[in-house]
Design a protein around this nucleic acid. Structure first.
Lengths: 207, 207, 207, 207
DNA sequence: CTTTAACCGAGACGGTACGTCGTGTCTTAAC
DNA sequence: GTTAAGACACGACGTACCGTCTCGGTTAAAG
């Protein structure tokens, strides 16, 4: 499974057999846009990052950006995901509890350093419209949630976890605590948090 | 304890004995500003709400707003808190678990309807700067967190809750799940969620 | 010779052979701006005329005005000159004295009615900075001064005018008297003045 | 005759015999206001000088300024005239021509250095309303004009000057040339001008 | 020797306009 | 048909002053 790109990038009539007419989409432009975003994010917040600045830094017309992404959130999310690389399935572990732990650690490793801050800023920015919110949610959070939900269900079936556990709620609590911590002013996820969360998560899941 | 106002409203030299010079702050203006914000929030999102629109609606100069609040988040947060009214201490219940439940239900009742959406939008807006973030956190979330943290500690001492529980983490998980749910696109906290969260919260705290 | 436009209107790289890139300047906007200024000047003074009002009346963004003119004086001067139309050379007359008279009458005709008042208000407004002052002087007064100075020199050579006459001073006196009269509160140049000035001007020039 | 103050400074019911009740006007404030204006004029233009800045520099409430002067032009004009000191009548000279010369030189001496620039800026600022214009004209220019007009009439009667001379026009030309020169960008009246103007003025007046 | 009235400083008030920035759209010529 | 360039209408920003107002306090003449 891959989380590395959004689905905007196929030129519009994507599904017909014959070749598209006219000048093809410039891959160079796409790369330099995502590249520019990533470089700019080192210097400024998501809020302060403007499409205009991206276009200028990337040496690209604003139109080119607007043609391929619907809004700022989409571009930045795309740039961020391009950094994360593809999300391989985790190798299955001995116990489900261990799998949960692995999964959580992998997720938090993604958000180490500036990335956590940036992701939270994107999530915040995404709140401004229904459209961007689902864009963000479905392209990023949802897949992590699904993996975790499946693991929990698996644990419940195997008798490792409490049967009376509300899976959806547990997922909200686990990912919610990470998001909430980052939103409360923590610059990054400190070591204490990254160590304790998986342990405590297991505690609340187990019988 | 009161959550009804921010600390911006004392004219600058607040604590000295002698009287302030010059024309005193207009309480009428203050009220009409907070009022305007509350009325405007019914029609538009926090993002789309402009200082200019508030000033116009309130029949007030923009300067008057900027004189008393440092930014949009502060005004809106203030207006919202003025709606919530003061936060009385909860009457102590039979068990700590019950107190936790009561406290959570009270919190979620505050966020019923549009208020939940608005609060999350403020929280999102507040992400744009360190300053607004602490403003939001310290004037709203922090006091709720503290109440809950105290209850959990109390429960641990009384032997009601697990001794090995990480209090801070538990608080993050509980409030995080609410915030995260609202941030994920839920227009409001549905009945299912508001019923299940307190139950599950007790489950993870108890032995 | 033409006095009908300032030199702001050539897009920046004016003199190179190759075509300019990007969307070209909108002539429609330019016209509607100058038009709006001229209509607004009928109702309000130069001082009370705001860039914002012009933009609104012209149905144009403020930025479009700021893009092409450096300040209010420049726009208004431009609008006024667009009214005056181009300045043809006068047909040479029998005597230089007659030419001087013709030139003066033409100048004063330009300033009949509201135009005199407006021009003086622009001149007044232009005093606020070195930049606007030279803008005004070089784009309007200077050419009139030069014509007059040339005529006076010609008259001196032909023996019509006093050899010991200080040409520059004479020009200052003649145009100065007009400007000064308008600045002293005269709404317009009255008939008495417009009749007498040319006569008296000839008197002080002649032997 | 005195040109050193405007007539604003008598407290409102000026002409009745008995003393006014209440706290009398503070002369200290008046002085520090005029003083502040003169100091500020060394640093900024008349246009950029704000009532607020004057009040601050003078350590005075804005209300105090507005109580005694109707507008900015009035305050600044007042401050400038307080610098000029009183205008004594000139001692009569041998010839009227000499008197004219003396009068002109005295006038131009007043405008040496920054004062010329400032006066012209006041005159420019005064153009914005009928009221300020007459204020400026009647409190400053008019008395100079009258002296000159009287001298010219005297010269005509004595047979020194041309009988067919239009006195009003001559006055406009003479003072107009000075004003116009200063308005055209000259920082000050240079030596050449101050030497030549009186000579040329006599030339155009004489037979 | 208290009242009364006008003054004073400070500074908040409702406004207006400023000049700038970013949005998303558009119109060119070049490829 | 896409691209870079860049002009466009629009809307909001935060600031500066305007002229007015409202306080507490002062300073005199009038009662």
């Amino acid at each position: 499974m891959s989380a590395s790109t959004l689905k905007y990038h196929e030129p519009t009539p994507s599904e017909d057999g014959q070749k598209r007419r006219g000048r093809p989409r410039s891959e160079t432009s796409k790369k330099s846009i995502l590249n520019a975003v990533n470089r700019l994010l080192l210097l400024s917040s998501v809020k302060d990052l403007s499409i205009e600045a991206i276009a200028k830094k990337a040496g690209v017309g604003k139109t080119t950006i607007y043609r391929w992404w619907p809004n700022k959130v989409a571009v930045i999310l795309d740039a961020l995901l391009s950094q994360f690389g593809s999300m391989q399935d985790l190798p299955t572990s001995s116990t489900t509890a261990q799998s949960v732990k692995n999964q959580l650690e992998r997720f938090m490793r993604l958000l180490k350093g500036k990335n956590g801050k940036i992701l939270i800023e994107i999530m915040a920015e995404a709140q401004s419209s229904e459209e961007t919110l689902t864009l963000f949610y479905e392209n990023f959070m949802l897949q992590h949630e699904e993996i975790m939900a499946n693991l929990i269900e698996e644990g419940k079936e195997k008798g490792e976890f409490r049967k009376n556990l509300n899976t959806a709620l547990a997922v909200d609590m686990i990912y919610g605590s990470i998001v909430y911590r980052l939103m409360s002013g923590a610059e990054t996820l400190d070591e204490e948090f990254t160590e304790n969360l998986p342990k405590e998560a297991i505690n609340i899941l187990k019988i």
